[in-house]
Amino acid sequence: MPHLSTYVGLADHSERTLADSFRAVAQGHAREADVFHTCQLLAGWSDAHRERLATVVDRYGEDEVVEPERLHADGLAEVREGAVGLLRDLQDLHVLASLVQTTWTVVAQAAQGVRDRELLEIAQDAGVETSRQITWLDTRMKAAAPQALIVGPPS
């Protein structure tokens, strides 16, 4: 199952990138109190997904297959300034979270195929929480966008 192991590795890697990026946005936009606290909370969810995955990763290993490496998205090492910067950073988090979510979708499918109930449950639970991360990002972007785009100072 070389490709399943690749995707287990991708799940782990992309969750780590997402967690780190949530934390970077939290710190970088700490003056936005809700962004600061919620991003830290959501980073913790991604950490927890990785911890659960670690319990089954031995079964599959984390193959370093070259080709799907291209799927790895870069995280946010540093954040942008201001209201439009926040909007763009939230959009970047949304892209990263979407990669995580589709990864869990395909891992769940494969887990079902190999009848690994434990992995299936992990992938499904993590997928649900990733959706909740994305929902929050959608909600927060919608709240931030008009002010940032219409009356925000030039960035």
């Binding site: 809700d34 919620t38 909370l41 909740r132 991360q133 929902t135 929050w136 959608d138 909600t139 919608k142």
Partner: peptide
């Protein structure tokens, strides 16, 4: 809403 995050249904 999601009671934990405030994300909108």
């Amino acid at each position: 809403h999601d009671l934990v995050t405030g994300g909108a249904v």
